[in-house]
Amino acid sequence: MTLSKRLLLTAGFAAAFAGSAFAQTTTATPPAATAPAAAGTRFITVSSTTSTQDSGLFGHILPLFKAKTGIEVRVVSQGTGQALDTGRRGDADVVFVHAKAQEEKFVADGFGLERKAVMYNDFVLIGPKSDPAGIAGTKDIAAALLKIQEKGAAFVSRGDKSGTHAAELNLWKVAGVDLDAKKGSWYREIGQGMGAALNTAGGMSGYVLADRGTWISFKNRGDLAIAVEGDRRLFNQYGVMAVNPAKHPHVKINDGQAFVTWLTGPEGQKAIADYKIDGQQLFFPNASQAGA
């Protein structure tokens, strides 16, 4: 009687955890050491940016790719710098980012195979509707940034070595603002992703440089609106490259290359063009454009 009760208790203890947790885990986690395929799933890991992820683009195009090839794409979205690092360490099979100079260095250092242009979107300068810098509606991004700095209006920087961060720093240079000298309390580096930067800008009525895709799909706009857009210098080019198997022999080069080929081929390009939110196209495929 008592013994069985004790047994029951012990068994209950174990079952409470094991039943729901452990049994499933063992079946669902990769068992093999060299080929970490979850129960036969064919997949590649792509390190990409928060902008492609947050905008919902992957949710649209990846199912199409999987339907066509049977390859599941697992996207780890990070800032561009981090995403390239992930590829450099061999933790991804393909890198899909937007910072051309860094991408070319990645390939030149032997970590990636050929870089291919995929698409572009553009950056927009977002600001509070009260527009303390008086730049709303203008087209010249360099002049607008200069004004923000001169008036000391709050500006939120990603500060996370992402592609957007790199583009922002480049634009400050174009505007002739020496950030190292002029950095003050008005310039706020948050070290976080695009969405977090937009949330922060909304919270402190500041300006922020954002990619249009994230902006369009961003839901917590509050008092924020587009201040500056349309400048050619705001174009944001995305590139894709497979990680070099010469550096990391375990990478799935065939499946990775299949993704690169599909993305830059007619089907992938069409899928990108078809992705719209509220009728607005977010990304513009340009794989065939020379020098992009």
Binding site: T29, P30, T34, R74, G90, D91, H250
Partner: peptide
């Protein structure tokens, strides 16, 4: 667990495990 880390060959990074 990173591929460049000591246990990288297990291929466990970015998995539930």
């Amino acid at each position: 667990l990173s591929r460049s880390g000591p246990l990288g060959s297990l291929g466990l990074l970015f998995t539930p495990t």
